[in-house]
Simulated assay, not measured.
Amino acid sequence: MSKAELIGLDWGSTSLRAMLIDARGQVLSERRSAQGASTLAGGPAGPAAFAAALDELIADWAPLGLPMLACGMVGSQHGWREVPYADCPADAQALAAGALAVPWRGHALRLLPGLRCESAAGVPDLMRGEETQLLGALTLAPELGARSCVVMPGTHSKWARVVDGGLLGFATHLTGELYALLRRHSVLARLMPSEDFSDPSAFAAGVRAARERGEEGLSHQLFAVRTLGLGGHLAGSALPDYLSGLLIGHELRAGLAARDADAPLVLVGEPALCQRYASALALFDLAAPRLLPNTAALGLWRLSQSC
């Protein structure tokens, strides 16, 4: 039976996932908590709050004396300790070199940096946590390291450009957060039911509107979500999926225009959401992309080899 070699923490804004990871990067045991970085106290009380959250979740793991590595918002300005971003282009060695340690129960917990890049126009972009998932994906499928476009759907979707095993740059799309805000807290929400209903045809219609008429502008097409409902063209139960398709369609329109044309696409993350993106890509007449699960644990294991 495999034995644990690493305690890995995937510590995001809203949740904490702690994992016992073996020498092959496989998760042997996992625990979860809602104590994300955004829910814990900032300022002087911050470090104590983060340590207490870890005590509550895995105090019994401390006697194991294993190396500890954490990725995500735990290393942000509002985290346990701020870890400066590493600059693109970057690889596993660059990320590991930027890790900083905090004490926990007599052990050193190393917090990984995020990544920073600039667009051709000089606009900065940032990620924290997704870089570890990306490295895990390249470990699971090494052939993607030669040249690929890795898409990580989520609250803040990332489109990463990989060449020769390194991350050259990336672009963030606020798709998931925009959907949540518009779905619950905008004028569009007034026509939508409180519960979600699956309507694949409405989702496809939203994707096609973005693909075929995206030049109308996202803000104009977003208002049409309301008018389609008011005019009886779409039922209220169909509006959430139409909105989702519209937002994802605009993300794909921009992401595909910016990617290297010959770079294979791969989707990494929560399976249901990746499948949703895959169905949208099919409406752009693209071959089915490769789908990989959340690979943060494997990425933490790979980075631990360089720390």
Rank of each mutant, 00 (worst) to 15 (best):
R183G: 08
L218V: 10
A235K: 15
L188F: 13
T227S: 15
V187D: 03
T227M: 11
R226P: 06
L228H: 14
A189G: 09
A210G: 02
Y277M: 04
E195W: 05
R253C: 05
P193G: 07
V187F: 14
A263Q: 09
P200M: 01
L230P: 11
L265R: 09
P264W: 12
E195N: 11
A238L: 01
G206Q: 00
L265W: 07
R208E: 13
S198Y: 09
C274H: 06
A258I: 04
L247S: 04
D196R: 15
G214C: 06
T227D: 05
I248V: 14
T227R: 08
G206K: 00
A261S: 15
V187S: 14
L191S: 14
A263L: 07
L247I: 08
A202V: 06
S194K: 14
L234I: 01
S219N: 13
P200C: 02
L246E: 02
L230W: 06
E251Q: 09
G217L: 08
I248L: 08
L246T: 02
P200V: 00
P264T: 11
E195A: 15
P193W: 02
E216W: 09
A224T: 12
D196Y: 10
I248R: 09
F203D: 01
L234N: 06
F223Y: 14
G236Y: 11
V225P: 01
A263E: 10
L243F: 04
A257T: 09
R226E: 01
A238D: 03
A205G: 06
E216I: 02
A261H: 11
R183S: 09
V266K: 04
G269R: 06
A209Q: 14
D262K: 13
V207N: 06
A210R: 04
G206V: 00
F197T: 15
G229W: 12
V225N: 04
D199W: 07
R226I: 03
G231T: 13
A224G: 10
L188V: 13
Y277T: 02
L246R: 01
A224F: 13
S201L: 14
C274A: 15
F203G: 02
P193H: 02
L273K: 05
L267Q: 06
G217T: 10
R253Y: 09
L243S: 05
H233T: 13
S198I: 11
S219P: 00
S219M: 15
V207M: 01
L267V: 05
T227C: 09
D196H: 15
A238P: 00
G232A: 08
R190G: 10
L222I: 01
E212N: 12
E270L: 10
S237Q: 13
A235L: 15
Q275M: 11
S194C: 09
S201H: 12
D199E: 14
P264Q: 13
D262Y: 05
D262R: 13
L188G: 02
I248A: 09
A263S: 14
F197G: 12
G245V: 00
R184E: 15
H185A: 14
A204T: 00
L273D: 07
V207S: 03
